[in-house]
């Protein structure tokens, strides 16, 4: 991709905020690679966003003060609305959700579609929250296994055919290990994990410096999504859905590098 590509501030922000679909994300990525100045500009945006979290995230770990607890624990005053009214209101929300949306992002459409085909009421954000929880489990698995010195993987890459055959069979869909040599990472091997009672696979990569990233996948027929970032203790992860698999790439790397690797994984596996 060598064409000159002019991006607007809004597009850069949308990229940083995970609002772009996969194709638009790839275009920004190409623009980013084209010039170190572009990369610096993006990195600065990411850093500024991260700084806000650095500044205020500690509030989340504080105990909720008694005064607020008291408000929350006060006996209920208003009876819940009748069931038929809740259902009617829910239907309206679904219709509005389905009609809304914005060209640059697939998320809203994906959510509305999934929600609309579900019989039971679902929190509007439920789909994203579900994948966020998936990504958090990927982070957990990353933190646990990437710290392993002796047994980081269950089956080494020396037995690649066995590894991939086994995990493909357990997940019920073919899985592959993308080549991340361009980013300096080589695959070590993989393991089978339980993801909320369903099989998931984790592939571990390592670079020259001993840094490790893991790809966490499970079978998933959900709507295709954009990349989204979730932070965790000890690592963060980008996650996305590209049926028949849902992916999370976890590592203790800068967001920019993590995203670059995620894009490589996506490109390698979707072509």
């Amino acid at each position: 991709m060598t064409r000159a590509y002019r991006v607007t501030d809004s597009e850069l922000n949308a990229y940083v905020d995970g609002e772009l679909d996969v194709a638009a994300t790839a275009e920004i990525e190409a623009w980013r690679s084209a010039d170190p100045n572009n990369a610096a500009r993006l990195a600065a945006l990411c850093a500024d966003k991260a700084a806000l979290h650095d500044l205020y995230d500690e509030v989340l770990d504080e105990a909720v003060p008694a005064a607020l607890q008291n408000v929350l624990n006060r006996p209920r005053v208003h009876p819940p609305a009748p069931t038929w009214l809740r259902i009617a209101a829910g239907v309206v929300v679904l219709l509005v959700g389905g009609a809304g949306g914005w060209g640059l992002r697939d998320w809203q459409a994906a959510e509305a579609t999934v929600v609309a085909t579900t019989a039971t009421p679902v929190v509007q954000n439920g789909v994203r929250e579900d994948y966020q929880a998936f990504a958090k489990r990927a982070i957990g698995a990353h933190v646990v296994y990437s710290a392993e010195v002796l047994h980081p993987v269950e089956v080494g890459i020396a037995k690649e055919a066995h590894l991939l055959g086994w995990l493909s069979k357990r997940l019920g869909t073919p899985v592959r290990v993308p080549d991340l040599a361009k980013r300096g990472f080589a695959v070590i091997g993989g393991r089978l994990l339980a993801d909320q009672g369903k099989p998931a696979a984790q592939f571990m990569y390592e670079d020259q410096a001993g840094r490790r990233v893991t790809i966490y996948v499970r079978a998933d027929q959900g709507q295709k999504t954009a990349f989204r970032l979730v932070g965790g203790t000890g690592a963060s992860a980008f996650y996305w859905v590209d049926a028949p698999l849902a992916y999370a790439l976890a590592g203790d790397l800068a967001r920019d590098e993590l995203l670059a690797i995620s894009l490589d994984v996506y490109n390698a596996l979707s072509l």
Binding site: P65, A67, L68, V71, L72, R74, R76, V77, H78, P79, P80, A81, R86, I87, A89, G90, V92, V93, L94, V115, P121, V122, V123, Q124, N125
Partner: peptide, 27 residues
């Protein structure tokens, strides 16, 4: 900040019947 949250919580709890099921509680 906590005064603001307290006011907001009281208002929310007093208007729970206005919350649209299926929409985002966070939002």
């Amino acid at each position: 900040a906590d005064d603001l949250v307290q006011d907001a919580l009281e208002r929310a709890l007093g208007r729970l019947h206005l919350f649209k099921p299926g929409s985002s509680m966070r939002a």
